[in-house]
Amino acid sequence: MEGWTVTVDRRITKKEKPNTEQLEFGRIFTDHMFIMDYMEPLGWHDARIVPYQQLTIDPSAMTFHYGQSVFEGMKAYHTDEGEIQLFRPEKNLERLNHSNDRLCIPQIDEEFVLNAIKQLVYLDKDWIPKADGTSLYIRPFIISTEPFIGVAPSHQYKLIVILSPVGSYYKEGINPVKIAVENHYVRAVKGGTGEAKTGGNYAASLKAQEKCTQNGFSQVLWLDGVEKKYIEEVGSMNVFFKINGEVVTPALNGSILEGITRNSVIQLLNHWNIPVTERKVSMEELYEAYVDGKLEEAFGSGTAAVLSPIGQLSWGDKDLFINNGKTGEVSKALYDTLTGIQYGRKTDPFNWVEKVKEVSAIKN
């Protein structure tokens, strides 16, 4: 795609921007979106930014019938100095290609797509909210569009990027949440699509989420799909536990999504010389640590919420109240540091931040 440009069709009548104080997550979308098509033998082509609009897709498009789709989630932040920055966006596009490979979707040019995303974000920069805890959520996704009812990889695709100004993902914010351990339903199994970011994984989680919400919990803690013994994820986030001074997180095993925030947490803990280990963690081990007074903190990590402390785990007839239902010291330090780097308020020793500036690679 060397030498390619992104054509732009600017919206004439701009949408009304929302009240920052009333922002929900993922309900409102900006003026423009990015689209690029794939068709054999052309490959990826026709990269363009257009007004946000509905799609016209054939009812027999394969994405509707066989679920061949992937997506990513990242954010743009407005700093106190008026700059716009992204947090490790290259890792999101690297993971998108990993998901593409698992779903038999053609690879994208990561550098080109990142440049296109920056152009889109800059064009809609006035949509980036400035209130504390708010950001512009960026959702790239790919769907199979070939009109064919047959179980096979599609020969046609659309890559689309949409933007949404957002507030906090959980209404609890950084305050600890109540989590139910799921013993019946499973999210994914090794050899399946758990390590890819595809819609089917999330559809499979809805029934358990519905049940736990009805019972007053924020999310479910997922166990492995074979023995239903080992901890994997919490809701749509990776999960960490501080046990007797050591932070432990489930090792990547083929069914756990490799989170960018997860990786960032591990790097920060190593930077602070706090022991951190990736390994199998069973609910039995966790409960024993709780009984022995060694379970000190628990939290989930992910792009949407950044970090969400866990104050209570409900496992069958057992309730684990962690750190007296308060946010732990390590959890708070991680949240403050990650968000501080994302908003440009703290030093970035890892070069995680990428600035978004006006670019010349736009063909009007």
Rank of each mutant, 00 (worst) to 15 (best):
M1C: 03
M1R: 01
T5Q: 15
R10A: 14
R10P: 14
I12K: 10
K15S: 11
E16W: 00
P18S: 05
N19M: 08
T20W: 03
Q22S: 12
F25D: 08
F29P: 06
D31T: 03
D31E: 06
H32M: 04
D37N: 14
Y38V: 07
P41Q: 02
L42A: 11
D46Q: 15
P51V: 06
D58I: 07
Y66F: 15
V70Y: 00
E72S: 07
E72Y: 08
Y77V: 08
H78K: 12
G82A: 14
E83N: 12
E83D: 14
I84G: 05
L93R: 00
E94P: 03
R95H: 05
R102G: 08
R102Y: 04
I105N: 01
P106K: 04
Q107H: 00
E110Q: 13
F112N: 01
V113C: 13
L114D: 00
K118A: 07
K118C: 06
Q119K: 13
D124R: 05
D126S: 14
W127C: 13
W127I: 12
W127P: 14
W127N: 12
K130Q: 12
D132F: 08
T134G: 02
T134A: 06
R139L: 07
P140Y: 05
F141G: 08
I143K: 06
I143T: 04
S144D: 00
T145M: 09
E146Q: 15
E146N: 06
P147K: 00
I149L: 15
A152T: 13
H155E: 12
Q156F: 08
Y157V: 10
L159H: 05
I160A: 09
V161I: 12
V161C: 09
I162S: 06
L163N: 07
P165V: 09
P165W: 01
S168I: 12
Y169V: 08
K171L: 13
G173I: 05
G173N: 11
P176N: 02
V177P: 05
A180P: 01
N183G: 09
V186L: 14
A188P: 03
K190M: 14
T198Y: 04
G200M: 04
K207W: 01
K207F: 00
Q209T: 09
E210T: 12
C212G: 03
T213Q: 14
N215P: 02
N215A: 15
N215W: 02
N215D: 14
S218F: 06
V220A: 11
W222L: 07
D224N: 15
E233L: 05
F240C: 01
K242T: 13
N244V: 05
N244H: 10
P250D: 02
G254C: 10
G259A: 01
T261G: 03
N263H: 12
N263L: 11
L268E: 01
L268Y: 08
L269V: 03
I274H: 01
T277A: 11
T277H: 06
K280E: 12
V281D: 04
E285D: 03
E285K: 04
E288T: 08
Y290G: 10
W315V: 06
K318Q: 10
K318Y: 03
K318D: 02
L320G: 08
F321L: 14
F321Q: 14
K326Q: 14
G328P: 09
V330T: 15
K332A: 15
A333I: 07
L334A: 05
Y335P: 10
Y335K: 10
Y335C: 15
T339M: 10
T339L: 04
G340I: 09
G340T: 00
G344Y: 00
P349F: 09
W352D: 10
V353P: 11
V359E: 10
I362T: 15
N364L: 11
